[in-house]
Simulated assay, not measured.
Amino acid sequence: MQKLEKYNFKNKALALLSLLLVLFFSSCEDVVTLDLKNGETKIVVDAEIIWLKGTTGNEQTIKISKTAPYYNNTTPKVSGAQVRVENRDGDVFTFTETEPGSYVCTNFVPVIDMDYTLFVTAEGQSFTAVEKLTSVTPIDRVEQEIVPDFGGEDVIELTFYYKDPVDEVNFYLTDYKSDFLIFPEYELTKDELYNGNEINNRFSDEDKIQPGTVVDITNRGISKNFYNYMNLLLEIYDGNPFSIPPGNIRGNIVNTTDSNNYAFGYFRLCEADKVSYVVK
């Protein structure tokens, strides 16, 4: 059996919903508002360069925002930033703001195993990060079958297959998206025990996957460092609502103006394969 690490945002949502129901029925007339302390505001750089197989990969988007208090209904966007990416050969790709906090490049050139450097200047601070574009093998096929869940009920399970390259150390990040999911479900995989063999990843839901349901499966090749970062990050969402996060999880983005004023986020470059599967 392959060694997988799978994290489900749905588990946290259900736990939080249960907690809210308990609070509601125990005190229907009182509004419970927790007095939460606000931490220091940080820049957040959402910089994923994702190259889907079968596309040129020339259009890429980087989003820049700031952290906000827990009860805020909106995420503050960072406008007026300067954003560019340079590759190892010295080619420069400029990202232009198209809407508040969203920066788009339309002439990006993705090259497998190429080193890229991100440069961001925002609100008087300069940030940089370096990463390599990681390849991924194509998804060979998707299969479905009826299997019993933990309660003995029959559920539809989807399994997709892909061949892991031989003589390489590979890491993968998969996301599953569908209309019935509030958040994507993520799955981390590494080839520690089955290098060069066929890998299969499974996805099911107790009662939401029905004939006609469309499930989008995106499988990325990722670096070891990004794998470790996501491993820590997703642990927060797989626990109970009272769990203590393992400190501030910092990515690879460095503040060159003030090293203590770090940014959240991770600059990553991934080749990916995507399949939209219609459940039979």
Results as ranks from 00 to 15, higher is better:
E123K: 15
T257C: 02
N228D: 11
I217W: 15
I209S: 00
A13N: 11
T94P: 04
V254F: 06
L36V: 15
G251N: 09
V155H: 02
E97K: 14
K42L: 07
D91M: 08
G251F: 08
L188R: 11
T137Y: 05
N197F: 10
L19R: 15
I62S: 03
V214C: 06
E145M: 09
P245K: 10
S243F: 07
D113T: 14
T174H: 12
S135A: 14
D191I: 11
T61G: 07
T67Y: 12
V166D: 03
D140W: 05
I43F: 02
Y229Q: 06
G212R: 12
Y194F: 09
V166G: 03
F150G: 02
Y7E: 00
T213E: 01
E157L: 01
G57H: 09
N219L: 15
T74F: 15
S276I: 09
V78I: 13
Y116I: 04
A68W: 07
E153L: 07
I244A: 09
L16A: 10
T121W: 08
Y237G: 12
Y176L: 06
D273Y: 13
D216R: 15
F150L: 05
Y237C: 02
T33N: 12
V278E: 07
K42T: 06
C28D: 00
T106M: 08
T74G: 02
P148Y: 11
V92P: 09
V130F: 02
T106E: 05
Y172D: 01
L21S: 13
D175E: 12
D175C: 00
L133M: 15
V83H: 04
N240L: 11
K208E: 11
F160D: 00
E29S: 11
R141A: 11
P69G: 02
V78R: 14
T96L: 05
D258K: 14
P211D: 00
V44K: 11
L234A: 05
I236Y: 07
P184W: 02
V104K: 15
Q82R: 09
A81V: 06
C105L: 09
N248V: 15
V78A: 04
N231R: 12
K163V: 11
I249H: 02
V120Y: 06
N87I: 12
V215W: 04
E157F: 10
F180K: 07
T213Y: 14
V278Y: 00
I112G: 04
P100D: 01
V166L: 11
V142K: 03
T137W: 01
N87Y: 10
A272C: 01
G151Q: 13
E198Y: 01
S65W: 10
A81H: 08
F171W: 14
T189W: 08
E145N: 13
E145T: 09
S259E: 08
D115T: 15
N200G: 01
I209K: 08
L34S: 10
D113I: 07
V78H: 09
F267M: 08
Y176D: 04
L17Y: 10
